[in-house]
């Protein structure tokens, strides 16, 4: 679908909406405008984009981005792609669940893996990772654990369950705890610095 035409129609109908064409998709510059834009595209007789096929996210380090793909089942058109960029420090986007029920699990998925908070979501909690998991593993600054080194939590747990832990592993765990460090996966050499 012609992005420039969609943009012109949106600006005509909604007045001051900051939109920008980015690579045949529409960047909604102010995240709070998103429900307005989506509602127009869903309900306007010329578009009738009644199907939200995907809500996905990506981490661009400078910001987090959510991408929406809208299709029309009625008119057999689409997709219209919407992008929303939010800062990493305060990633909040209004939820589209009230417009598209299909967004519910996908927004939960993005919340789980990227930590983007969809305001107004009826049940925003982790969907893939378990309750009590810390951090957002698809963010680029997520530090993965080193799965070969036991930490003091592991040693305590193992001894509580009657498993003998080798002395070397125990000493390593104590050392890590004294330094106040976690055992983290090593980085690739070319990525250092």
């Amino acid at each position: 679908m012609d992005t420039e035409k969609v943009k012109a129609d949106l600006e005509k109908a909604l007045g001051p909406v900051a939109l920008k064409s980015v690579r045949s998709s529409l960047l909604v510059e102010n995240a709070q405008d998103l429900p307005k834009v989506a509602k127009f595209l869903k309900e306007d007789a010329a578009y009738r984009l009644d199907y939200l096929s995907s809500v996905t996210a990506s981490d661009f380090i400078d910001y987090l981005e959510t991408v929406y793909h809208l299709y029309s089942m009625e008119k057999k058109t689409g997709p219209v792609t919407l992008r929303v960029r939010v800062p990493r420090t305060d990633p909040k986007i209004p939820s589209l669940v009230s417009l598209y029920r299909g967004a519910e699990f996908q927004e939960r998925d993005n919340f789980d893996l990227f930590g983007i908070v969809y305001e107004g979501h009826p049940d925003l909690r982790r969907i893939m990772m378990w309750e009590g998991f810390e951090g957002f593993p698809m963010r680029k600054d997520y530090l993965q654990e080193d799965s070969e080194t036991l930490e003091s939590v592991d040693v305590e747990w193992l001894e509580k369950n009657g498993v003998k832990v080798p002395e070397a592993a125990k000493a390593k765990a104590v050392e890590l705890r004294q330094q106040g460090k976690r055992a983290l996966a090593e980085r690739r050499v070319e990525d250092k610095g």
Binding site: W130, L150, W157, N161
Partner: peptide
Amino acid sequence: PIPEFGPHGLIPKFNPE
């Protein structure tokens, strides 16, 4: 022993036995 869910992965990371 059955591992448990921890904040960063499973606890323990492996069973040294």
